[in-house]
Amino acid sequence: MLRNLVLILGFVLTPLVAQEVAKPAAEPPPGPDAKPTYVNSETCQACHEDIFKAFAKNPHYRLETDKKRKWEQKACESCHGPGSKHSESMAATDIIQPTKLAPSQADKTCLTCHRNQPTHVGRIDSGHARSAIACTSCHSVHKPKELARHGRNAAVNQQCTSCHVNTLASFQKPHAHPLSTLSSAGNNAMSCLDCHNPHGSAPKANLKFASANEPGCLKCHSDKRGPFAFEHAPMRTEGCSSCHEPHGSTNPRMLTRPEVRLQCLECHSNIATQQATGAAAGGTLGGIPPAFHDIRSPRYANCTSCHMKIHGSHVNRAFLR
C-alpha cells in the first residue's frame, strides 16, 4: 500500500515540484517610484465597508485605538501593509494578502505583534510551525466571533479535524473521550484544546502541562496525580499513553490491549533482559518476573483485580491496596 501511495504521490507532485523549483526564487521588487505609504483605516472602509463593520467586532479592531502597538488608525495596514498604491489602483496585487504568502512570511506578519506573548512560548518547537502551517490556516482575522451552532468546542474540533482526519476517526470508536463530533450528541464536553496547545508546548504532540509541569491528563483526572509512596514507573517515564489510547479505542477504558494481562505482560514479560540483571546495557525495565501466578486461572487473568492501585499506591508496593 505504501509503495503505491509513494508512486501516486510521486507522479502527481514531482512535475509540480520541479516546476516550482525552476521558477525564480523571489518576487520582483516594486519599482522605487511605487513605494506605497500608509493611508488610514477610513480609506479602507470606503470600499470594504462590510469587512470593516465585521472587523469592528473582532479583537484586532483594538489596534485602531491601542497605543501599545502603535498602529492607531491603521489597523488594516498593520497586516496588509501601506495601502496608498492599492487605494489608487484598486488592484489586489498592490496590497499584501497574508493568505497568499508563504507560511513563514504570513506568520511573520502575525508574529510581529503576537510573537512575544506567553501563548507562543515553544511555538518554534511545535509540529505546526515545523510543518509550515500558517496562522491563517486556523485563524480568521476579519470575522467576529460567531455563535457556533454546537458551541465553541464543536467549532474548535471541526477546525482541528479538518486536517487531522485520522484522529477524528479514532474518536468514532466506542471508548473515547467525550469530544464533540458530528455523531456525539450531548458529548460536547471537550475540545482538542483541552489537551493540546496548537501553538506549541514542551511535551511532544503539543500536549499541555497542568500546574507548571505535571502531565496534562491530571487536570481532569486529579485523583491519579500522586505523588505516590509506590509509583508505577511508566506513569512517570512514558505517561498515560503507555497503556491508554486517549483518542479512542475499541478496548475498555481506552486501553491499548483488550485484556489486562496482555497489557501487563508486554512489559512484565518475565524475560530478564541484560540491563535488568545489571550485567550490561541494552535491556529494558520491568522484565524480571513479578510473580508466578497461573494466569490460566480466571482468578489471576485480570491483573488489576488484585493490583488495583495500578496507577500508584500509597500503601502497598505491589499496588494491592
Binding site: 509506590f230 509509583e231 514507573a233 517515564t237 512484565h268 540491563q275 535488568a276 545489571g278 546495557a281 529494558t284 525495565l285 520491568g286 524480571i288 518476573p289 513479578p290 510473580a291 508466578f292 508496593r317 505491589a318
Partner: peptide
Amino acid sequence: DAAVRAGRVNPFGPSELGE
C-alpha cells in the same frame, strides 16, 4: 536515565536502572 523499583518477587531488592 531512570532508577525505578521493579515489579520483582523480592520487594526489597535493588532498583533497576534504565537508560
